[in-house]
Simulated scan of single mutants.
Amino acid sequence: MALVLPFEPNEPSIEALVALVKADMERVNATILARTGSDVAMIPEVANHLISSGGKRLRPMLTLACASLSGYRGDGHVKLAASVEFMHTATLLHDDVVDESDMRRGKLAARKLWGNEASVLVGDFLLGQAFKMMVEVGSMTCLDILATAACVIAEGEVMQLAAAKNTATSEDDYLAVIRGKTAELFAAACEVGAVLGQRPKAEQAACRSYGMNLGIAFQLVDDALDYGGSQAKLGKNVGDDFREGKITLPVLLAFRRGDASERAFWQRCLEKGEGNDADLDQAIGLMTRHRAIADTVERARHYGAIAKDALALFPNGQAKDALMEAVDFCLSRAH
């Protein structure tokens, strides 16, 4: 059983964003390939397994688009965009080990093919390469933003570990987790584009706000899709969050709104880890009854609106239009 969220015609896409940054992304992709090279054969094998597996590269595209929005004319945005993608890839490699995930982007996770140790160590290699490129760009401010993001992402992951299987987690705690583990990298990716363009502080802050709120919306939709989406959209098995005992917003809303027997069900499945596939169907049924998935998507739309409003400081143009449509695209994944 899966809840199919309503279809809307003329779904938004990121084609405008892809077109805007096409030439720069070719350079980013070439940089990524060059920087995954190593005399240690397993490093490029593991790295390229994930890097070439069809991710949209949304985060590096945001860096390039915000640099364009800010009128930047140099080359530093290419290395910073590649750094952002390496940071993201490293976190995916590490996350799959922590979560004991079997699938990533519709393929076997690297840890299933090469083992946990290789996945962690190759992730560390990619983080090292990311920081080398940041240093080469020569902006201490950008280095500080991305280094801080690396720390905050790790904090968010540890916070998620602490909240795992705990149905007493508050919505505020949940939002703090996703700000750290997901939205912080979106925020940093956008902010460094404006910093490179030497824009006023207010515009740098606006790009950061855009990225932060887009990242929150993105993760909220992901969490809704885990119960109301399809494996093709997720690139992993539907219900993985349920099987791993993750406390996400759809769970929190269904738990809060349920009666005592329903709360006992969530505690048995998530806190005690006794859930099975039949229980997953019941979980989706409870979420449907209490509008937990639909209201999670509504929350995502709220943060998407904040992201769009953050761009109001900038004049209308191709870059702004592409960034605005990127918000609509992230929200449209819920359909």
Rank of each mutant, 00 (worst) to 15 (best):
residue 94 H to G: 11
residue 175 L to H: 12
residue 292 A to C: 09
residue 212 M to E: 13
residue 59 R to Q: 04
residue 66 C to F: 07
residue 164 A to T: 15
residue 290 H to A: 06
residue 287 M to Y: 06
residue 280 L to G: 03
residue 137 V to I: 08
residue 154 A to L: 04
residue 188 A to C: 09
residue 270 L to M: 14
residue 125 F to G: 08
residue 82 A to D: 04
residue 102 D to V: 11
residue 250 P to N: 08
residue 322 A to C: 10
residue 127 L to T: 06
residue 123 G to T: 10
residue 300 A to I: 02
residue 273 G to Y: 09
residue 275 G to A: 11
residue 298 E to P: 04
residue 316 N to P: 07
residue 82 A to E: 00
residue 175 L to Q: 13
residue 249 L to D: 06
residue 238 V to M: 07
residue 307 A to Q: 05
residue 284 I to F: 07
residue 140 M to A: 12
residue 167 T to M: 15
residue 240 D to C: 11
residue 127 L to R: 05
residue 197 G to I: 05
residue 170 S to W: 13
residue 94 H to Y: 13
residue 6 P to Q: 07
residue 41 A to R: 12
residue 200 P to E: 12
residue 60 P to W: 08
residue 184 E to L: 08
residue 182 T to V: 11
residue 251 V to A: 02
residue 111 R to Q: 05
residue 254 A to R: 07
residue 63 T to N: 01
residue 137 V to K: 00
residue 114 W to A: 11
residue 1 M to E: 10
residue 299 R to E: 10
residue 116 N to H: 05
residue 16 A to D: 12
residue 146 L to T: 00
residue 43 I to Y: 07
residue 75 D to Y: 01
residue 127 L to N: 12
residue 316 N to L: 05
residue 75 D to G: 02
residue 245 G to I: 12
residue 69 L to H: 00
residue 78 V to L: 02
residue 312 A to P: 04
residue 117 E to D: 06
residue 16 A to S: 14
residue 132 K to R: 12
residue 148 T to G: 09
residue 78 V to P: 03
residue 133 M to V: 12
residue 190 C to A: 08
residue 179 R to G: 09
residue 206 A to Y: 00
residue 181 K to L: 02
residue 11 E to V: 12
residue 142 C to E: 01
residue 86 F to E: 00
residue 61 M to N: 11
residue 139 S to I: 03
residue 203 E to F: 03
residue 82 A to M: 10
residue 288 T to F: 07
residue 36 T to I: 15
residue 44 P to D: 05
